[in-house]
Design a protein around this nucleic acid. Sequence first.
DNA 1: CCCAGGGGGTTAAACGTTTAAGCGCCATGA
DNA 2: TCATGGCGCTTAAACGTTTAACCCCCTGGG
Lengths: 347, 347
Amino acid sequence: MSNPTIRNVAKAAGVSIATVSYVLNDSRPVGEETRQRVLRAATSLGYRANVTARNLQASKTRLFGYTWRPSPPDQFNPILDRFLQAMAEAAARHGYRILTFPTITLEEELATYEEMVLIGQVDGFVLSNTNQDDPRVRSLLDIGFPFVAFGRANPDWDFPWVDVDGTAGVRQATEHLIQRGHRRIACLAWTEESLTGQFRLQGYRTAMADAGLPVDPRWTERIGNTHANAYAGARQFLSLPADIRPTAVIALTDLMAIGVINAAWDAGLEPGRDLAVVGFDDAPIARFLRPPLTTLSQPIAEVGERLVTTLVDICNERFLKERHVLLQPELIVRASSAVLDDDRVTR
Amino acid sequence: MSNPTIRNVAKAAGVSIATVSYVLNDSRPVGEETRQRVLRAATSLGYRANVTARNLQASKTRLFGYTWRPSPPDQFNPILDRFLQAMAEAAARHGYRILTFPTITLEEELATYEEMVLIGQVDGFVLSNTNQDDPRVRSLLDIGFPFVAFGRANPDWDFPWVDVDGTAGVRQATEHLIQRGHRRIACLAWTEESLTGQFRLQGYRTAMADAGLPVDPRWTERIGNTHANAYAGARQFLSLPADIRPTAVIALTDLMAIGVINAAWDAGLEPGRDLAVVGFDDAPIARFLRPPLTTLSQPIAEVGERLVTTLVDICNERFLKERHVLLQPELIVRASSAVLDDDRVTR
DNA sequence: CCCAGGGGGTTAAACGTTTAAGCGCCATGA
DNA sequence: TCATGGCGCTTAAACGTTTAACCCCCTGGG
């Protein structure tokens, strides 16, 4: 029933438990003959050190906590699968595992973090979807507990984060559209409190400005991240007078891009030909849409990996080479961002 | 730095550590005055019992292990988000948490299960995507370690599982199509080794037989679960002679249904009008497809909840009311399964 | 008056490790 | 010949709980 303990191994090898420990961790030199005896005993019994006892002794758990807000039925999380796998894999390489716990309300979530710290359930946390002045970041910073964040929160707060450069990504997407002949480009953005949304919108504005293109205020809609909102926003764009109606729309997520595509179809347009659409995330579905969606692919696996290795370094009080990592998304060009056909636009 | 221990509370309350433990767990009656003193000391110090020490003492971890195969870039996992949340939430209600660990090859996965059992990292496992004669089930059964499975494996193996009734689901979908006037219905199935695939295919066959409809062998394609395979399979269907060409296709997943829809468009047909399509899973994207996809929604939250509560019962050696739970999927009717328009079909 | 029993607390062992401190022995150098 | 030091191992404490066993004192019944 119960697994063999270090005591069983010690007895089998005819040595003390300390010797067994020293041999197995080789934390101190042990005579070769004894060493072999211990090793043989351990393998023949199939001994593995109990993780709880080890954790108690070391006052560590080798566990990292992670939670995320569940997507409502009309939204989806395009990165969860890869993100969790990447984190779990990187963690495993360093002897850690990922603990997932449920998220309900924000207050409950904050209480849960504190509780888990107090009872010593994890050695650190990974946060994602951080917002401007994120209270979770503030709280963990205040109690001085190890954590890393996927996303920034406040430039004045000093904490380790990894993020994807949304500004550069959207700038690149905008330049791509400009290069394909588009001049009237709209941006379906997020509401103001989203820091990530700010960064991405910034990329659009920078690219337009750098190209010397005017930006009509009606070309920017600030909405929540749902298909319905995006659909309505796109209809707004398409109902503008012909001379200022956008020929391309950049959506800050693939979900919103899908809303734009559907609005275009329903308006009798063929997205990809009559209206260019660009998304963000490279959700698995993006390549199978009609038309296949041009979008920005986030290096999620690398984000997960960098976050976890940073957290491992923090927990082992190692020096951090980089406290802040900004990774570049990659523009995946598909059919939804075709070359502008002037005849159609001006018809 | 370090959290208060039971010793600190004992000193502050002027009692022994045993008394503190008895009060906090009320595992033995303690004089009212002392009780209050202990309680006050505990709250004023912000004491919470250390989970590792407690686990060591109890030889439990209150952790359940879960892993899943990462989706390749051209596939997606439509249920992971809700499934994990449901499990984490149900687990939390019983004082458990979910541990995720990475999956590489099958052999490594089996070795990881054994390793985690040996080092006592978890109290039980949740398996999903079980196959016919699943070696993970066999292995855990052999070593007698607590686990539950989402999915069946072998009728002769006695282990607790929860599953969604794919047979009933696909039968219902087939009947729905028949009721809408379809007679030539095809099924895009999985390869033979998938038990889930067998069950679902069975539903199609049963419904057709019950309705007295003949089934042409060319109406069943057995393929792996990818868009490309589904696309090719649908082209096969559509290239059949007009008098046996199916007017409706049932795909065993939404991903495959998307392949069918795209093949239909590319063949110059309008899916939902010229070709009915039904999927399985009700992936978040299903409602936003063109046409919106009729599909079978799995009660994922309930599956996760039932699995976890069963596992909790097993770990606490409680009697299981039900070792096997078969939940019903719900047919979500959307525009992709329109009424058959005879004129179009026979034109 | 004495003993049984119970209320209210304490002591100490146990869970399975890691690791600091100690101990015996042998070789080496003064 | 004797201190010194190093090698090779053991003893025991510590991590923070839970809980069985025990102890003291008071009360009530025989």
